[in-house]
Write a protein that binds this DNA or RNA. Structure first.
Lengths: 211, 211
DNA sequence: CATTATACAGAACATTCGTTCGGAAGTCAA
DNA sequence: TTGACTTCCGAACGAATGTTCTGTATAATG
């Protein structure tokens, strides 16, 4: 609660805890903190840690070695999504084989709060500019969730049998036909016979890195 | 190195370590691991940990409490980017004030490998569909790096003084004039007097979450 | 059969590590 | 001044925790 400014020592402690934890994968002990910031007595470190906790900068688990956690650093929720290939209009999208749970030459790491769900995900790099109507372009990465069915309104990757083409669209089944709505609101939908549509997966995230 | 398959116990240990660490921010003790997977003797846990280390599944720091680290389990690279507002065509983009280092009602967390740089970043939510030519749309999130100058080829947010409009384009200064190139390759560039262009920041990442 | 390696248990041991206590020095207000 | 409060130190205590040792059972090997 005390909204006092932190003492230099306390700032140093926070900085050290952050750095140490990042480097070692576990937090430092009281004695390590003391040594780092130049405190000879463990009780003083303890004293300041309690203060920092009261001020809301960290959480302590009493009686537990290294029982520290910086608040805000918390979530620690990662998802590693294998980058399994490319997506472009003229081919069906690759779907990672069941068996090959692991062979990802590459993977991207995302924080879990970017995703609603973290099961059955895989990522594809967009190749070519044939998907501009889906607002994705060469180099973008689309994160897909493996599923063969789509619910209305979901953005899915579909393979159009007769056109022999992959496309990313919002999916609507209505009046016995499938309406595929481009992401770009300035473009109109296309209508397809449900028999001719193969849902390859649902798009859950699009990433575009600029450099 | 032993490429034997892991015993069920060892898999359980790895899973527990991963879960515990994710939940608490620090790894479990030997005894906690033992309890979790049903091993009564600390020596047996130790034994299996050594085996797992030899097989390359984790790293141990001897003599150190909770001195465990799962390999491949992320170098813990987070970046917390404050979500400071909205971007739309009819207003200049907000730039977080120098002083207000903290006031982010919201923030998004990204893994560091998504970004080339992690300094001076902030995020904006796209409002409206007036930026479709930049391949971003309502609801998308753009991550910006604060900078007032652009180098050729960079994707920047610029404020066009005479049009009174914000736009996202690739920036090229050539022959004394500025060429602004839309992300959408099917659209042509616009040319502007350098005096009329205010660079508000560089776009480093575009995120689109679908739900 | 004897030998070796693996996987485990239990107990004891040795540190590491969090906690507590008495006290000292400084600041601030009554 | 006195008294409270804060910040610090040093030392000691006890619990938490990693390590080691002895021993057993099993399977594979020759």
């Amino acid at each position: 609660m005390a909204k006092d400014k932190l003492s230099e020592r306390q700032q140093g402690m926070l900085a050290f805890i952050r750095e140490f934890t990042g480097e070692n994968g576990y937090p430092p002990t009281i004695r390590q903190i003391g040594e780092a910031v130049g405190i000879s007595s463990t009780s003083v470190v303890n004293y300041n840690l309690n203060k920092l906790e009261k001020d809301g900068y960290l959480t302590r688990d009493l009686k537990v070695s290294r029982g520290l956690r910086l608040v805000g650093e918390t979530p620690r929720g990662f998802v590693k999504v294998p980058l399994v290939g490319y997506i472009f209009a003229s081919e069906p999208v690759p779907v990672p084989g069941e068996a090959s749970a692991f062979a990802p030459d590459e993977a991207i790491e995302l924080t879990r709060d970017l995703l609603a769900d973290d099961q059955d995900l895989y990522a594809l790099r967009v190749r070519g500019d044939s998907m501009i109507d889906a607002m994705v372009n060469e180099g973008d990465i689309v994160v897909m969730k493996k599923q063969a069915q789509a619910r209305n309104g979901e953005m899915v990757a579909v393979w159009l049998r007769d056109k022999e083409e992959t496309t990313l669209k919002r999916f609507y089944l209505e009046n016995g036909r499938v309406r595929l709505q481009p992401a770009n609101p300035k473009m109109g939908p296309i209508f397809v016979d449900p028999e001719k549509v193969e849902v390859q997966g649902k798009v859950v995230l699009v990433l575009r890195q600029l450099n």
